[in-house]
Simulated assay, not measured.
Amino acid sequence: MSGPDPARNGVVQPGATSQDIYDGGMAVRREVLSDEHVERANANKDEFTDDFQDMITRIAWGGIWTRPGLTRQMRSAVTITAMVAHGHWEELAMHIRAALRNGLSRDEIKEILLQTAIYCGVPSANTAFKTAQQVFHEMDNAGMDNTARDNAAMDNTHSDD
Rank of each mutant, 00 (worst) to 15 (best):
D145K: 13
E90Q: 15
E111K: 00
F129P: 07
M26L: 15
A85R: 05
M55Y: 15
G15I: 04
E138R: 13
D107V: 11
D20A: 13
S105N: 07
V32K: 06
Q134F: 02
D150W: 12
Q134H: 10
Q133P: 00
E47M: 04
R97F: 02
M74Q: 04
T127R: 04
P4C: 14
V84L: 10
T127N: 04
S18H: 15
A16T: 07
G143L: 00
G15F: 13
A128E: 10
M144A: 06
Q13N: 13
R67G: 01
R67H: 08
T71K: 00
I80M: 04
M83E: 15
A16I: 10
A41E: 11
N102A: 09
A60W: 03
D50E: 14
A132R: 07
Q19A: 14
I59L: 14
L100P: 00
N126T: 06
H137C: 06
H137S: 12
D46V: 00
M139T: 13
I59Q: 15
A142H: 11
I80W: 02
V84Q: 10
A99D: 02
G121A: 00
E36S: 06
N42L: 13
E111T: 07
S76V: 01
T66C: 08
I80S: 12
V78W: 06
V78R: 08
S159E: 15
D140T: 03
A27Q: 10
N146Q: 14
E90D: 14
V38A: 10
M154P: 08
M94K: 07
V32N: 00
R106T: 05
T17G: 13
L104P: 04
N42S: 03
M26Q: 06
Q115I: 06
V11E: 13
A43T: 09
E31W: 05
T66P: 03
A128T: 03
S159W: 14
L92R: 12
S34R: 12
M1D: 15
V78I: 05
D51E: 15
D155A: 13
L33K: 01
Q13V: 12
D155Y: 05
F48T: 11
R58T: 05
H137Y: 12
I96E: 07
I56L: 14
G63Q: 10
T157G: 15
T157V: 15
A132E: 09
V122Q: 01
Y119R: 11
I96G: 08
S76G: 02
G25I: 04
P4A: 15
P68G: 02
W89E: 14
V38Q: 07
D46W: 01
G121W: 00
K130L: 09
T116D: 03
G143K: 03
E31F: 04
A82K: 09
T131P: 00
L104M: 05
M26S: 11
A98T: 01
R30P: 08
A41H: 06
G121S: 11
S105T: 02
N102C: 05
P4F: 14
D20C: 07
I64V: 12
S34F: 03
G69I: 10
F129A: 04
Q13T: 09
L92W: 03
Q53L: 02
W89H: 13
R72A: 01
P14T: 03
I80A: 11
M144D: 10
A117T: 09
V78A: 02
P14C: 06
T147E: 14
N141P: 07
L92I: 12
T127D: 03
A82F: 02
G87A: 01
Q53I: 08
